[in-house]
Design a protein around this nucleic acid. Structure first.
Lengths: 199, 199
DNA sequence: AAACAAACAGTCAAGACTGATTGTTTTTAT
DNA sequence: ATAAAAACAATCAGTCTTGACTGTTTGTTT
């Protein structure tokens, strides 16, 4: 019926989605191959065929997750003209992205990569790419008047760190109102703007 | 020779230190009981006697780690008179704390607790206590003129999130200079101060 | 010093995971 | 139509972990 290319695409997609879902639900350590295969309703052999080792499966999942996160980040900002951006609105949008699940899947990978060199080699360059894209967005919307590249990079890192940190805290304290208050303080203090512009 | 209380104290200390060291070196998933025992140069039986289950060992390690982190946080600020605090100095101190190992041990526990309810029950209250202490310090040094408790809480969370986030990024990109630039931007933007005070 | 309790040592059984192997079905190319 | 290749299925061997169990040493109490 289906061509082989289609079958492959469908199977690998199911497999990668199951991997990411498991990452979210059970964490990196809990993401075992038998469990992922059960979730994807697929035999171990099928998985073995497409991804011979766990490492190769995870590597592919990292790339897929990267695309998902990037899409989420760009979801709202892509259609916004450069320079015209309501700040608290943007913060609200970003917060919604960060309270989604892809952040936690990414977090699992990053934290696991700290003590797993091979995973680190896979995720580090992809993360760097994600940060670069974030920088470009920041440059376009938040920091159009800043010319020093170092400044842009550092400010982007600060902004990402705030969201990462707040989302991390959300693991233990699910108080969204407080996180929003923290974000309001950050925007009010003009953190997301530099020299000559304000919220 | 040694009294039993001393023996117990020494053994549990060795065990908990080995647990924390393993947490740092191999992550939560890699912290197996045989490995911890080898590291502590101790038999499985000894560990079994003092901490019958893995959960009980980890719970004790959490409490010990809490004390270590709290000590680090207070290390410099305790001797500083309230109100007189050089801001970039304080940020530098905090950054040194966060680039230490206890943060990463804590990170492992927090991230693992996301998908491990029993661990979460152990670490959530301890983390809440840590945040409360941080709030008190912030109130004393950074926000003495702020009266709204919500404001203090939210600002503290923002500050902690920045350090948490920056330290997390450090896992993949070890560029300390950039992190320091980000911190400088945060302080320069008056993020760590509220109304009426500046850096 | 004798009896008791705590601390410590070593081993085992059940279960889980990864990578490998062998066999079966489905698609493709000649 | 048929051989080759890709996709899929099922099972196995080896290693690891946790909790449990039995025995030994060390400290305490009376």
């Amino acid at each position: 019926m289906a061509t082989q290319a289609e079958r492959t695409a469908q199977t690998t997609e199911r497999l990668l989605d199951a991997t990411i879902a498991t990452l979210i639900e059970r964490g990196y350590a809990g993401t075992s191959l038998p469990f992922v295969c059960r979730r994807a309703e697929m035999s171990r052999g099928a998985q073995q065929h497409h991804y011979p080792t766990k490492e190769s499966l995870v590597a592919a999942a990292v790339r897929r997750l990267f695309e998902q996160r990037l899409t989420e980040f760009q979801g709202r900002l892509a259609s916004t003209p450069a320079g015209v951006l309501d700040l608290s609105d943007a913060a609200e949008f970003m917060w919604r992205v960060y309270t989604g699940n892809t952040f936690y899947a990414w977090l699992e990978l990053v934290v696991a990569s700290r003590t797993d060199p091979t995973l680190r080699e896979v995720i580090a360059p992809v993360d760097a790419l994600l940060v670069t894209r974030a920088e470009k967005m920041c440059q376009r919307f938040l920091l159009p008047f800043v010319t020093d590249p170092n400044e842009v990079t550092a400010t982007t890192r600060l902004i990402l760190s705030i969201f990462d940190g707040l989302a991390m805290h959300r693991i233990l304290s699910r108080d969204d109102a407080e996180a929003r208050r923290a974000l309001r303080i950050a925007t009010r203090q003009g953190l997301f703007t530099v020299k000559g512009r304000d919220a």
